[in-house]
Amino acid sequence: MTRTPTASQTVGPYLHLGLTRMTFPDIAADATQGETIVIAGRVLDGEGQPIPDALLEFWQANAAGRYAHPEDTQDKPLDGGFLGFGRVPTDRDGQFSFTTVKPGSVPGPGNSLQAPHIVVCVFMRGMLRHLYTRIYFSDEAGNAADPVLGLIGDESRRPTLIAQREPGSNRYRWNLVMQGAEETVFFDC
């Protein structure tokens, strides 16, 4: 008996079919401490077309800079109503939006501090492996010294990770571009 390898397959349309009930677009509860913000944008392909069936997961520290995880033993306060996790699908126009609190700085390599950021994991059809990226904030002075942003050799690509604050509001705009000239920086985790 011989075994013939089967063809590999890409991820199917299960994201909206199987995970629609498991979305968490409001990471910040009413009692969560810190500045409540909204991050909205679109997920686009290399030609600027919307990707209507992506799923984005978010992990972040609370406003004090502490993760709701047992391995985070920093002497910073936990916020009992804040888990630091969210999940949102894109709509047919590739749009997404979620509400959270602006995170605090967290420790980085050595004795450095990382600028406030949100870790993003991207799932979508056609990808066998999910991708990781980050959202930083345009109004944070700590971006200049952030050790992870500093790893991006081509400084012209760093803005793909920075959400722009809309003037006079608590809203940030950030688009995720999967490939092409404006491709978002992704990290190999």
Rank of each mutant, 00 (worst) to 15 (best):
D91N: 15
G94W: 05
P25C: 08
V185G: 02
A145Y: 02
T6Y: 08
D75H: 10
T184E: 01
G48Q: 04
T133Y: 00
T133P: 02
F137R: 14
P103L: 02
N170K: 15
F58V: 15
G126N: 08
T23F: 03
I27A: 10
D75T: 11
T10N: 13
M1Q: 08
G34M: 06
D93N: 14
F96S: 12
V185N: 04
G81S: 14
Q114P: 01
W174M: 10
F186M: 09
G150D: 05
D72A: 11
H117I: 00
E182S: 07
E71A: 14
L113W: 03
G94Q: 02
T36Y: 05
I135N: 07
S156Q: 13
N111C: 02
R165Y: 02
Q114S: 12
A29I: 03
F58K: 02
F186P: 12
G126Q: 08
C121L: 12
F187G: 05
M127T: 11
P103V: 02
R87K: 13
L131Y: 07
G81A: 13
P50C: 08
I37D: 14
P107Y: 01
A141N: 06
M178T: 14
G41D: 02
A115R: 03
G153C: 06
I118Q: 02
A64E: 05
V119W: 03
E35N: 13
C189D: 09
L113S: 07
W59A: 03
A28R: 14
N143H: 03
T20P: 04
D72E: 01
S97K: 15
L161Q: 01
R158E: 01
V185D: 02
T100W: 04
G104Y: 00
P167N: 10
Y67R: 11
E71K: 14
M127A: 14
A163P: 13
P147L: 01
P70V: 07
G65R: 02
C189T: 11
A31E: 13
N62F: 01
A163N: 05
D93E: 14
T32E: 03
G41V: 11
R157G: 04
T10H: 10
A7R: 15
A181V: 05
F96D: 07
I118R: 03
G104M: 00
L55K: 10
N62H: 01
G80W: 03
H16A: 11
F123Y: 15
A145F: 03
A7H: 12
T4S: 09
P77S: 04
P25T: 08
Y136S: 05
H130E: 11
E140V: 02
F137V: 06
P77A: 09
L44M: 08
T73L: 11
F58I: 15
P52V: 01
E35A: 15
Y132L: 13
P50L: 05
Q74P: 01
A40H: 10
G81L: 05
G168S: 09
Q60Y: 00
E166I: 15
G110N: 12
A141E: 10
P159C: 00
V11F: 14
V11D: 10
V177S: 04
R66H: 06
Y132N: 12
D45Y: 01
N111S: 12
C189E: 09
Q60T: 15
Y132G: 11
D75E: 11
M178P: 07
Q164V: 15
A141Q: 10
G180W: 00
L15W: 13
H117S: 12
F58T: 11
P77Q: 03
L113D: 08
A68W: 04
F187L: 11
